[in-house]
Design a protein around this nucleic acid. Sequence first.
DNA 1: ATGACCAATTGA
DNA 2: CAATTGGTCATG
Length: 713
Amino acid sequence: MTDEHGDEVGQLALMPGLERARATARETRQRAEREPEKRAADVASERPVARVLVDVPLAHLDRPFDYLVPAKLDDQVVPGSRVKVRFAGQDVDGFVLERVEQSEHEGSLAPLRRAVSAEPVLTPAVARLSEVVAARYAGTRSDVLRLAVPGRHARTEARETDLSEPAHPDLGAVRGLWTAYDGGPALVKALAAGQRPRAVWSALPGDAWPVLLAGAAAATHSSGRGALICVPDGKDVARVDAALTAALGKGRHVVLTADLGPAARYRAFLAVSRGAVKVVVGTRAAAFAPVHDLGLVAIWDDGDDLFAEPRAPYPHTREVLLTRAEEEHTAALVAGFARTVEAEYLLRTGWARPLAAARSVVREAAPRVDVTGATDRELERDPHARRARLPRLAYEAVRDGLEHGPVLLQTPRQGYVTALACDTCRTPARCTVCSGPLQLTAAHRPPSCRWCGREHVDWSCAVCGARGLRAPVVGERRTAEELGRAFPSVPVRASGGERVLATVPGEPAVVVATPGAEPVAEGGYACVVLLDTWLMLARTDLRTEEEALRRWLAAAALARGAGKGGRVVAVGDPAQPTLQALVRWDAAGFAGRQLEQRQSAHLPPASRLATLTGPAEQLTGAVDSLRLPPGAEVLGPVPVPPRGPARGQARGPGPGSARASPVDDREPVERLVVRVPRSRGAALARALVEMQGVRAARKLPPLRVQIDPIALE
DNA sequence: ATGACCAATTGA
DNA sequence: CAATTGGTCATG
């Protein structure tokens, strides 16, 4: 399978690496000139030059280098294959981008050292994608490729891949699934006809969205094209996987997730890259899957923070998929019960069209939502109710709901970084200059901004004008046991942290879950209670309200519709605008207002924002060397706030591809925020790449650069 | 990253 | 004046 290009190299083994490579190339050339017929034996006769992307971490080396293809490697060195080359005196991995007849390079060329395999793992489309994503996120192609191409597994590669049979989905039935949405059947028709509709889909509460997504994929598949669906976690992958099997039959799609393990992941990847299957569902790792003839990209619940890649250059799954939609001319679906501000932006710019049900249909499908204050504890004489510490309305809703089916209680997780808020109206306190969250750093100091560091001596609330500030108190934490004891006649099930339940049966039970871990109930929940809603609104993050509404809607959408008696009780301030959006079930209007706020506050997606993190003395030098585009604002640097706990299960770093973060988290670091109008985003990313390149050449420590980070605490 | 090279700086 | 250090440059 692999082959050492050893004969000449062996003789020259005592020479220093660079000289040896040079001498080898020179000799090859000289011999080719002396004896033209001999050249064919040494160097491939057709397209003897391979353009190779070398795997080195330096920004200024992120370009192809040319190598000669030895004749005996001719068969294996195909575009997209892995090779080993001598580069700057050491053996490094690389991908062959293309084979060409001539090199532009003036000097002599070194031969490829080794062909790792003939498997074309880097398709032209993904090579191009890595370039665009690297440019967008101020990173390098080799960093992106580490995310895009899974590690090789030789035994798996040696096995053949079965070609899937064409599917014959019932497109009439698929169109029937989508009739609740204006333009839904037309979307399915367009996908089946090979067109590329682009939509932001607001899913109806209670809808079997995995089935609808699978239908869209099947329609695309019937046009001879592939489809790629990304969902936040394994629980959702399983649901879409089952729906795809039902829509397409067995063996016509694959699941692609990082936690399959190296062999299974590579097997699924090869089935896709070899074109044997063209429909893929997976988590964020799947966004780069080399689907042949890609016709549709789809993302479910794009606000979920699991879509934010934690490894450099920190690309977001939604942005990767939308880039593919542009580059590969595909249809796109951005879907969820909620609507992100980024999705709203796609609608505002006309890039995508809304796909939603009529208001009357939504009202019927959504549960009735009530908000109740937290202080009402008239039932405290009842020993069961006292233990649960529930307001009366919530207690009664749970009690009544349990007569008709399971009841879900959503309790916020602990450990959010909380911001100061107005003492009177509880609006989070924001910096008047950069709209960052305010914090108290020391006694007898005025509050200061977490983003730009500015102190605010005479703060007053922008909403109500009051001058008092409060730090939201982390509420009473109630355990599943405590809540369950208030309803002793039914079983209690807990879901969250390490133990996440995917589904619960349709019989009466109290189900206590943390946000994101809510099980789906058979037949829907009779009642959903959202506890301590103010805690979710007290985070310092830049998308606090959006995130809170997304999580409430996700839980509330698991309840039965109002038509079937389903109801939701949220414990919080009824005047709070985010809770009002929940009551009206109006994620679209809410996203519109959030987008306007982001525009006036110069936050993404209206602006493009970059954070630079590193030792304080490095940051000042870095920002001086940065060629900022016009209209750039620099905030900070300020000390990095203590790290909040990461969401999701604590899994160890994946094998192979992990590269240590460029910034040592143990030493004290500071953070600087740069923001520019969105139209200058590309220029900002270029300036940051240039800065990293200069820093690398000067052997300065790299800084962590993040473009449009998902969270900014 | 790694190594090569040149220039400036340091030490006896 | 030699040895050492630091900045710059190229890597095919």
